[in-house]
Amino acid sequence: MSLEQIPVKKARPNDYTSNEHPVWCPGCGHFFILRALTKALAWLNISKQDIGLVSGIGCSSRLPAYLDVYGFHGIHGRALALASGLKLARPDLTVIAAGGDGDGYSIGGNHFIHACRRNMDITYIVMDNEVYGMTKGQPSPTTDPEWHSKLAPNGTGLSSFNPMGIALASGASFIARGFSGDPNGLTKILTEAIQHQGFSLVEIKSPCVTFRPEQKDWHKSMRLMNVTPFANPMEAAQAIYGSDGFDTGIYYQADSPVYRSEASSKKNGTASEQMDIIEKALLV
C-alpha cells in the first residue's frame, strides 16, 4: 500500500483543547478523562462549533473551560436539565453533560433519573471519585460506608448508591463504566456513547489523589473492558449488580425510543401563517 492511498484524519485531539490549562491536582484522574474525550471527539471528527458541553459545579465540572467548544459551566446539580433544554432546542448539536458523583447523584439526583427516563440523545460523563473534592473531602453518595472523614468520623454507615442500576431502572439506553487510567478503553466507550442514539451514562472511576490517595491503587484492581453489552435489561441488571465495581465496559445498550424535538415534523406552512391560525382561534 502506498502512502498516498492512506485516508487522512481531519481533526486531532489538541484541536479541541482551549487555551486554558487544567488546574486539577497533579495526578487527578480527570486529566485522563479530558484527554480521552478530546480523542473521541477528534476520532468522530465533530466540528467544534457543533458541540455543547454542559457541566454543574465541582472539580470535574471545570471540564468545559478546557475545551474549545460551546461550553456551559452552570450551577450545582443542574447540568442535565440545562443540557436537556439545549438538546431539545438545538437537536443539531452534539450535547454532552459532565460532572462528578456529588453533582450528578446527590444534588442532581432527580434530574439524573428524569434525564435517563427521557432518553434524549445526550452523553452524560460522570467523573466519580467517591468524594466531594472541591469542598475538601466529604462523603458523597458513592462513598463506601466505612470511609472515615471529618464529616463522618466513623464512616457514613450508608451503602453506596448504584448509579448504573438507577440509570437502568430509569430508562437510560446506554450504560457503561470506564476507568480514567485506561485511556484506550475510555476513549472507546466515550466514542460509542457519543454515537449512541439516546441517553448514555458513562460512569468513570476517576481517582482523587488528594482526598482519597488510596484510590491511586485502583489500577491494580480494575478489570478493563471485560464486559459484554446486553440489550436486555434483565441481563444487564445481572451484570451491573454482579460486578464489584471494578469491571469496565459497556453494560447495556438498547434501541429505545428517543425523546426528540418535534419542531420540524409538525410544521405546516410558515410560522407567521401558523400565528394567524392561532390568533383567529381566539375570535368569538
Binding site: 454542559v54 433544554g85 438538546k87 438545538r90 419542531a263
Partner: peptide
C-alpha cells in the same frame, strides 16, 4: 408545536429554569 417550537415538561422547577437557560 405549530410554530416550530418545543415544550418540555420538567421534573421540577429547578429543572424548568435550567432547561430554559439551556435552550
Amino acid at each position: 408545536a405549530q410554530t416550530g417550537g418545543n415544550l418540555l415538561i420538567a421534573e421540577d422547577e429547578l429543572a424548568a429554569m435550567n432547561m430554559v437557560i439551556g435552550a
